[in-house]
């Protein structure tokens, strides 16, 4: 009986080991997709029709940060960056999001290839001066972490069409706005590479790992083409 039992345990143990291994390998080579709707554009090359696939790209924007400096896609040239949407008087998920974003900030404090942009969805209230005060109280600085304001419609459209997250006014919502708690990871080509729950520590851990992974892809020798 005892021997049977031991064999049984050994088998269970063995199976569980076997089970783990492939999963982990898969994880390592996991795809790092470009998110968003793709566009297919036909064009003619040497009389033949070819179809180009165009990946979703963050559209152009021009917003002003806490130091009264214009922030545009050019501000993130040669950087990967993380974007989110919030407002300073938000009583619900924003404080948690800011606490989590602070972890991202501190993780890449000395890495110039990473930046952060937080868009206010309440530009009427969140003036440049208020955003400056907010940033100082969090003890963070631009250009590493930009708190931006601007035209309300532009910000909402950028959120919905560009970063593919919800950001709009809703008087029924606590605080008066409805917005997603997402952190969006954008690569150097302005493609969205990941969307993470900014209120969930585990998901933000995953974001930090993915930023490392994304940065590593840029340092890779160009053997693949």
């Amino acid at each position: 009986m005892k021997i049977y039992f031991k064999t049984f345990i050994a088998i269970i143990f063995g199976v569980s080991l076997l089970g783990c291994d492939p999963a982990e390998k898969q994880n390592k080579n996991e795809e790092f997709p470009i998110l968003g709707r793709k566009q297919f554009v036909e064009r003619t090359v040497n009389g033949e029709t070819v179809v180009d696939t165009i990946d979703h790209t963050i559209p152009d924007f021009r917003l002003v940060n806490q130091d009264s400096i214009w922030v545009t896609p050019k501000s993130f040239e040669n950087k990967v960056y993380v974007a989110d949407f919030f407002f300073t008087s938000c009583p619900t998920i924003c404080p948690t999001m800011k606490k989590e974003m602070l972890r991202v900030y501190n993780a890449y404090k000395n890495n110039n290839s990473v930046a952060i942009i937080s868009h206010t969805i309440d530009p009427k209230h969140d003036t440049v001066a208020l955003l400056k005060d907010f940033a100082q109280r969090l003890d963070v600085e631009a250009p590493k972490w930009n708190f931006v304001t601007g035209n309300k419609e532009e910000i909402y459209e950028l959120g919905q069409k560009g970063y593919m997250v919800t950001a709009m006014e809703d008087e029924n919502e606590e605080g008066g706005y409805i917005h997603s708690g997402a952190f969006i990871l954008v690569d150097k080509e302005k493609h969205v590479r990941g969307v993470y729950d900014g209120t969930n520590s585990n998901d933000v851990d995953r974001l930090i790992k993915d930023i490392d992974r994304l940065l590593a892809t840029y340092n890779e020798p160009k053997t693949k083409s």
């Binding site: 009583p91 619900t92 998920i93 404080p95 948690t96 800011k98 606490k99 602070l102 907010f134 100082q136 109280r137 969090l138 003890d139």
Partner: peptide, 15 residues
């Protein structure tokens, strides 16, 4: 706890 944190420590000079 969203603002004051589970640890009661608040957040920076904000909360």
């Amino acid at each position: 706890s969203n603002c004051h944190q589970e640890s009661g420590q608040g957040l920076g000079k904000l909360y």
